[in-house]
């Protein structure tokens, strides 16, 4: 802040500009540095890392990724994560969009009550459902299954999805719906041919946000999955680390495998993602 104050004081301006740049530069190293360090370690062998933890890779051992993918089961974890997350995101977006449309568009008794009920669970601490969900999934033979985890993930992301989409759908002009009614569209057609196409930007934002949150989810996965073949990436990495605590190079490679999809999504959709994450917090 000193730097900003100095806008009005001519003498220390140059100095404080430099100070500001220094602080911001250091902060950038602080946020990106650990990640770059991880990236360099992922292409070095554990022996090289142990010799010097901070050296730039002399040889890029890309085969580390093949070893992690094939020999250390990260391919299994990766595909399990993909199946669960893609399935859950597809289902929750469809269910959430349908509910959000009904809540945003139609007047009926109890509209705000239904909205409040669906939305309020966003503050629930996860333990309130965690223990019982474990019992319920055991009862229905869905414990330790990817289907069970997918269903739970749908319920976890439902409040956020309804909240974000309801806010957007409510801003679609009513005239469009009136015109569609006059053209003889039924309610389902209106949803499919007007709300979904027009709402696509918001739906895309919701998809991306849900994808990242579920891709990173750990608590429910670690409780509801025990079979090593069914682990998702966060659980798999943690299990691998438990078994091979010293194998830093391979852990770093596994972590990179889990981070790369998120980074790719971020590179292509950073604006949408940031907008989605801010939508909930600004009033």
């Amino acid at each position: 802040m000193a730097a900003m104050l100095a806008e009005r004081a001519p003498l220390p301006r140059f100095f404080s500009r430099g100070a500001l740049a220094l602080v911001l530069g250091l902060y950038t190293i602080y946020t990106l540095g650990p990640f770059l360090w991880l990236a360099t370690m992922s292409v070095r062998t554990t022996a090289e890392i142990s010799a010097d933890h901070y050296a730039w890779p002399k040889v890029f051992h890309w085969e580390q990724f093949r070893i992690a993918w094939v020999d250390s089961d990260f391919a299994t974890y990766f595909w399990n994560s993909t199946i669960v997350v893609v399935g859950a995101v597809a289902v929750v977006t469809l269910l959430g969009a349908a509910a959000a449309h009904a809540l945003a568009r139609y007047r009926f008794r109890g509209n705000r009550l239904v909205y409040g009920i669906l939305f309020s669970s966003i503050i629930f601490p996860p333990q309130i459902t965690l223990i019982s969900l474990y019992q319920i999934l055991v009862d229905y033979n869905l414990y330790n299954s990817l289907l069970g985890l997918t269903l739970v993930y749908v319920s976890l992301q439902l409040p956020l999805t309804v909240y974000l989409l309801e806010g957007f759908f409510a801003r679609i002009p009513q005239d469009l719906f009136d015109a569609a009614k006059i053209d003889g569209y039924g309610d389902l057609e209106i949803f499919r041919r007007i709300v979904l196409p027009i709402g696509m930007p918001a739906i895309a934002t919701t998809l991306i946000l849900n994808f990242i949150q579920l891709w990173n989810e750990f608590l429910f996965a670690v409780v509801l999955i025990t079979d090593p073949d069914k682990r998702t990436l966060p659980v798999g990495i943690r299990a691998f680390m438990g078994d091979h605590f010293q194998d830093i190079g391979m852990i770093a490679t596994g972590v990179m495998i889990s981070v790369i999809p998120v980074i790719i999504v971020y590179i292509f959709f950073s604006e949408k993602l940031i907008r989605g994450m801010t939508a909930g917090a600004i009033k």
Binding site: A98, A99, A102, L118, S121, T129, I136, V154
Partner: peptide, 27 residues
């Protein structure tokens, strides 16, 4: 156009409410 039959509301809201009841409220 802001009104809908109960049937339409049921179709739109039931899946989400079913997930909520079964996997959030009941647990």
């Amino acid at each position: 156009p802001r009104r809908a039959s109960w049937w339409v509301l049921t179709v739109f809201l039931t899946p989400a409410l079913a997930v909520y009841v079964g996997l959030t409220a009941y647990p």
